Computed example of a mutant assay.
Amino acid sequence: MTDSVPAMIWVTDPAGFCTYLNQQWYDYTGQTEAEAMGMGWVDRVHPDDAEAAKAAFLDSTARQAPFHCLYRVRRADGHYRWAIDTGMPRFSASGEFEGLVGTVIDVHEQKLAEQALQRLTRKLRTPATRPRG
């Protein structure tokens, strides 16, 4: 069922190691299961974003708290696209922490539009240079 959801779905163990990714992740990133499990998913995060994404993820796991991170992920074709990764802690019936479960959603067009709007806003706030006469 999770392979037909229009999102990349993941599950971790209590230590933060990925134990499940749906087919959407493998199709999107081109990783194999062997490459992605554990902390292998970080290999598909842009080098400029990977350390912060991993640290935020491990911090959320340690605190057993929700996770939310925006980063660039490399697709199977080698191009990076912006994605939002969000997870929630999951607990057993007896209250024992079992890890996180979450989704990765491609938000590339939204992020590019946001960046364009920020550039335009800065441009409009910059006083125009007037010719001196």
Rank of each mutant, 00 (worst) to 15 (best):
Y80T: 05
S60I: 03
H68I: 07
G30M: 01
E35R: 00
A62I: 02
R63L: 08
Y80I: 04
G40Q: 08
W82L: 06
D48I: 04
A55Y: 07
F67Y: 15
K54V: 04
T32N: 07
A53P: 01
H46W: 09
R75N: 04
T61V: 15
Q64M: 14
Y71I: 06
A65D: 13
A50N: 09
F57Q: 05
T61D: 06
V42A: 15
L70C: 09
R44H: 06
D59R: 11
R44S: 14
A52Q: 13
A36L: 02
W41A: 01
L58G: 09
A53D: 13
T29R: 00
A53I: 04
C69K: 07
Y80R: 03
E51Q: 15
K54E: 14
D49M: 10
T29A: 00
F67C: 01
A56L: 13
A62T: 12
V45H: 02
E51F: 09
A50T: 08
V45T: 12
D43G: 06
K54L: 14
A76M: 10
V42Y: 04
R75D: 01
H46C: 05
R72E: 13
A56G: 14
D59H: 11
A36E: 06
A83N: 12
A83P: 00
W82P: 00
D49T: 06
P47Y: 14
A62G: 11
A76T: 06
Y71T: 12
R74D: 05
G40E: 08
P47Q: 13
D43A: 12
A83I: 02
P47S: 14
H46P: 03
W41S: 00
G38D: 12
A52V: 10
C69V: 10
M39I: 12
A56E: 14
A83V: 07
E35A: 04
R75L: 03
Q31E: 06
A52Y: 08
G78I: 09
F67K: 01
S60H: 04
D77E: 10
T61F: 02
A53Y: 07
V42T: 13
D49P: 02
Y71C: 15
D43E: 12
F57N: 02
G38P: 02
D77V: 03
D48Q: 13
V45Q: 03
M37C: 05
L70D: 13
G30Y: 00
Q31H: 08
H46T: 04
A56W: 04
R81M: 10
Y80M: 07
W82K: 03
